[in-house]
Design a binder for these strands. Structure first.
Lengths: 210, 210
DNA sequence: TAGATTGTTAATCGATTAACAATC
DNA sequence: TAGATTGTTAATCGATTAACAATC
């Protein structure tokens, strides 16, 4: 079954779903059959109440007196997240971060297939890397129009990010996973953007180790 | 002046400080002299009220009828975050992600100097990379005890993460920047941990592009 | 002075937690 | 049946927004 997006679900809840999925997947891999909200809460450092509230935004997956069936819940969470839809992703910028993602990151595990990379460096254009071809950045506009990838991973220099983002949106890209350090969500792009800010994360650590 | 850590300041506020710092730094680089909470709010997509509330957790940095002096506010934010304290960081695991961080990431911009790397691969042990030496992972315990680095960046395989984390804490590490995909904050480590979960971030994007 | 904008208190809103009837 | 645990409503808590007196 496919989940209808209820726009009333808060971002706070949505951000917790991948974490639930991770824990439930681990339990499944350990062949645990069932888990109660109380046990899961203890493992994850949450309250049982919050887990039940969160899951009930999407449906009643549990059973009174029993708890949650791990395998069923795992599948429900995958459905909620849309992991079985096999979205296509392209990556723009094949420097160190781009290469690290291409070679190491488990895209299918998050619902995506990485289909193509783009860069401006003639030394790598035409080469293959981690099973995908690296094309000239000048061809990205044409590529997106013709192949309709769902999202673009932005691992190019920060200064180039806003222009590329606008171009991609114009050609119909549906989401951006943004590693450039530039905030992109505000430009009224009209599509979801996930900004990954390494430096913000490290700075809060700097603050916290008094 | 040094800021005394007021433990009453919420995590929500703390997480916004690096973003304020980024925007104010940009304004400073563009030679903007002053900015009002109203203008800044419009740029950042927040309310003016929230900005004034947030900043006033740390002090009254503005002036009625004028707004905030950009250069002064920039310096205050750097002080709040503790960016001038020149913390020492080591990195554990020099695979693709580790290498990408070593070569590309601006550690000083977040208040840290990367001083040493560790890995198990004999091909790179003893080599230099991005100005730092890569040592044998077996020497990390001794190194931490003797050199007292402030934080460790964990870019090693997930399965090895919990054991290494415990060892580091035992030897006096004061914070962890964790890229392994394993949740580390729950083990009662007693030190701040920043977990960077690429897959969680990408999964929420999968959810949001209906 | 008049206009602008802060710092701060009060009001609102939303998210988390507690409680418990329903039910497996 | 008795015990356990859910789904859900109500209570609490915290965070955001609005309002405004203070003041530059």
């Amino acid at each position: 079954m496919e989940y209808q997006k209820d726009k009333g679900i808060s971002q706070a809840v949505i951000n917790r779903i991948p974490r639930y999925y991770r824990y439930i997947q681990d339990l499944k891999n350990q062949n645990v059959m069932r888990i109660s909200s109380k046990e899961l809460a203890a493992t994850m450092g949450l309250t049982a109440s919050q887990i039940r509230q969160d899951l009930n935004c999407f449906g009643g997956f549990g059973q009174q007196g029993y708890g949650y069936n791990v395998e069923k819940l795992c599948e429900e969470l995958a459905q909620i997240l849309g992991l079985h839809r096999d979205r296509k992703a392209i990556i723009i910028g094949v420097g160190n971060i781009g290469r690290a993602l291409i070679k190491n990151f488990n895209f299918p595990g998050s619902g995506f297939t990485l289909v193509c990379g783009f860069d401006a460096n003639p030394d790598i254009i035409g080469k293959k890397l981690g099973g995908i071809e690296i094309q000239d950045i000048s061809r990205v506009e044409d590529y997106v129009r013709k192949n309709k990838p769902d999202i673009a991973v932005l691992t190019l220099p920060r200064t180039a990010a806003p222009d590329i983002a606008k171009l991609l949106v114009k050609e119909g890209i549906r989401g951006l996973w943004n590693f450039t350090g530039e905030d992109l969500h505000l430009e009224g792009l009209g599509i979801p953007v996930e900004n990954v800010h390494f430096s913000d994360s490290l700075m809060t650590l700097c603050y916290r180790i008094d």
